[in-house]
């Protein structure tokens, strides 16, 4: 530039340049001051925590109306009856509620193979929530083992839920937050699928009765594994403790344990109708420990074969002595 030429570089230009230099120095200094870090990184990994704990979504207990066991092969009918025996959906769902339903959608397997919750059960519960419970919104969600979109599609649960008017929420990274369970040893600063539960007033678990080689059975308590994120398989090293901790972490309104067919062998994936047995039983329970304690009888197993029941009982999640609850029984045809 001509005015920077030494020959006519005057006082004015020098002053202007001086001001610019001072401004640049001030800017550099301010940015350095603003970003100055005296301590360096502390080695912690920053985590989100939208929810510190999962909300307790149970409703008050009513003696004698905690567990119902209904015989029948038509899931829609047995679900309705089982819930009616506990006092009807109105006992659990209040008008305007946001209800989260957590079916077991673990595998990309068609409904008739029994590896997932049955779409008929999911649909029946959604309809009850809307029609008689006058819920504002029903959300159906799970973090499956197989590919989520495929699981919801192939199991038929995605379609059944959408048709019945529920929102399906698929797991995405930003829907998890890290949670530490009070009194837990395994669930410490661990990602949990919390976002669907943030505005929820009620939570319903729906799972089938399945054989499971590691934990002896996969029923209503094991179903909550589907709320864990991360590489949750490491917890299989101590499967009974993690299931017991899940029963401390998750306080559902009630659970449905579907023993219409029971996966007797090759669980929890199944894969063949020869793994299934018709057992025609639907269990509704406000006590998951009791539901699972009864459910294992469909697998011809005893509560003692399922060490997680004792651990969950000790943790105060319920009772494995389901007969003490005086289960309500009925049969529908």
């Amino acid at each position: 530039m001509a005015d920077q030429n030494q020959t006519n570089f005057g006082r004015r230009q020098l002053l202007a340049r001086g001001v610019k230099a001072a401004a640049s120095i001030a800017a550099a200094g301010s940015i350095a001051y603003w970003l100055y870090d005296r301590n360096g990184p502390n080695g912690d990994v920053e985590t989100r925590a939208n929810l510190q704990q999962l909300p307790d979504l149970a409703v008050p207990r009513k003696n004698g109306q905690t567990l119902s066991i209904v015989q029948g092969s038509d899931r829609t009918k047995t679900v309705n009856k089982a819930i009616d025996l506990l006092g009807g959906i109105e006992r659990f769902i209040s008008p305007g509620d946001v209800v989260v339903i957590k079916p077991n959608v673990a595998f990309a397997s068609p409904a008739f193979l029994g590896a997932t919750a049955h779409p008929d059960v999911v649909a029946a519960v959604i309809r009850l929530c809307y029609d008689r419970g006058r819920a504002k919104k029903v959300i159906v969600t799970d973090n499956p083992i197989n590919d989520p979109a495929s699981c919801f599609a192939i199991s038929g649960i995605g379609k059944a839920a959408t048709l019945a008017g529920a929102d399906v929420v698929m797991p995405k990274d930003n829907l998890f937050s890290n949670i530490t369970l009070d009194g837990g040893v395994l669930i410490k600063d661990y990602p949990v699928f919390t976002a669907p539960l943030e505005d929820a007033n009620k939570l319903i678990g729906i799972g089938p009765v399945k054989d499971h080689h590691r934990s002896a059975a996969s029923m209503s308590m094991k179903n909550w594994y589907g709320l864990l994120g991360g590489r949750r398989n490491i917890f299989h090293q101590d499967i009974n403790t993690i299931i017991a901790e899940l029963s401390m972490l998750v306080k559902p309104t009630f659970v449905l344990l579907d023993g219409t067919t029971t996966m007797m062998t090759n669980g929890p994936t199944g894969g063949s109708v020869s793994d299934l047995k018709k057992t025609n039983t639907m269990i509704a329970s406000a006590d998951m420990v009791a539901a699972d304690a009864f459910g294992c009888s469909l697998l011809n197993r005893k509560p003692a074969d399922l060490p997680y029941l004792a651990l969950a009982e000790k943790a105060g999640a319920g009772t494995a002595d389901y007969e003490s609850l005086k289960p309500l029984r009925a049969e529908v045809t």
């Binding site: 080689h213 590691r214 299989h236 090293q237 101590d238 090759n266 994936t269 894969g271 793994d275």
Partner: peptide, 22 residues
């Protein structure tokens, strides 16, 4: 493998094997 070399129970592989029989 955890059960083979570290004396830890696991069998996640068995649980997830999708064929029947596994």
């Amino acid at each position: 493998c955890l059960p083979w070399s570290l004396d830890k129970p696991c069998i996640v592989c068995q649980e997830n094997c999708p064929v029947s029989p596994k």
